[in-house]
């Protein structure tokens, strides 16, 4: 099987704080990988390493058979929604047109670029919003704008950082349906701290909390929860794990409350 993303024994730290330690990951073509884990566990760092925005302290990363910097133009990146995007005066169309930028670019967008942008907006179902201000949209709509922008780059791998945080359930479902459709043409890596929403669509799950735990079926394994929430005694009853997976309440309460 052709591997799109290969990470071998990758470590990364900010100053003295180790974020990722000895992480290895192999993501085949057309995978729909959900990256889950607690906040601060290293999910976004993992994504930024793949994008070449951060350099690993140790280990090798190969994207589409190349070093990340050489492959980055073939990746589509959908960032986390932050308040900075809300205040910025820019229309949906202009936002999506950023996807046409590369090392070579024209002073103003060409007709071809505009058609590309319109095509991407159509794919994510928000063409009617193209003249709205991106900041005035709902969060779910704005995420679609960012996906359209990423699609305009014509990517082979689509990487999304927390795209559905604080989006209502209906929006979430429509959103994942869109992603499933895109998955027939491209590999998808989606970061989320929302454990179960992603897993019903994913073909593989990786849990990141300094270490990585990877499972090639779209299912959460007890050891992932152990890795992710090892010190927090949550009782979980969910699909795939119809039983108590972690320690009984009281056992580790001391740990989580100090």
């Amino acid at each position: 099987m052709k591997m799109d993303i290969v990470m071998e024994n990758v470590s990364f730290s900010y100053g003295n704080k180790t974020i990722l330690e000895d992480v290895s990951l192999h993501i085949p073509e057309r995978e729909f990988l959900a990256v889950i884990g607690p906040n601060g566990g290293g999910k976004t760092t993992l994504l930024k390493l793949i994008l070449g925005l951060l350099k690993p302290d140790k280990g090798q990363i190969s994207i589409l058979g190349k070093v990340p910097e050489k492959a980055v133009h073939r990746l589509g990146y959908v960032p986390q929604d932050t308040s900075n995007y809300v205040q910025f005066p820019i229309t949906v169309m202009d936002t999506v047109l950023m996807g046409c930028l590369g090392e070579k670019y024209s002073i103003s967008p060409t007709m071809k670029h505009r058609l590309q942008a319109i095509n991407s907006l159509e794919k994510v179902g928000i063409l009617d919003l193209k003249n709205e201000l991106t900041g005035s949209l709902s969060q779910g709509q704005r995420q679609r704008v960012f996906i359209a922008r990423a699609l305009t780059t014509d990517p082979e791998i689509l990487l999304l950082d927390e795209p559905t945080s604080s989006v209502d359930l209906d929006t979430q479902k429509a959103f994942y349906d869109t992603l499933l459709e895109l998955n027939s043409r491209m590999t998808i890596v989606i970061v989320s701290h929302d454990l179960f929403a992603v897993t019903s669509h994913a073909t593989a799950v990786a849990c990141v909390n300094r270490k990585i735990c990877y499972h090639s079926e779209g299912e959460i394994k007890p050891e992932m929860l152990e890795l992710a929430y090892g010190t927090c005694p949550v009782e979980l009853i969910a699909h795939g794990i119809p039983h108590r997976v972690l320690g009984v309440h009281g056992e580790r309460e001391k740990l989580s409350h100090d």
């Binding site: 994008l51 070449g52 967008p109």
Partner: peptide, 19 residues
């Protein structure tokens, strides 16, 4: 203009476009 726009709006995205 377009480079300044993408730099101001979204630095990380700009970097992923090789800017």
């Amino acid at each position: 203009y377009r480079l300044i726009l993408v730099y101001t709006y979204d630095e990380d995205f700009a970097r992923t476009r090789g800017i």
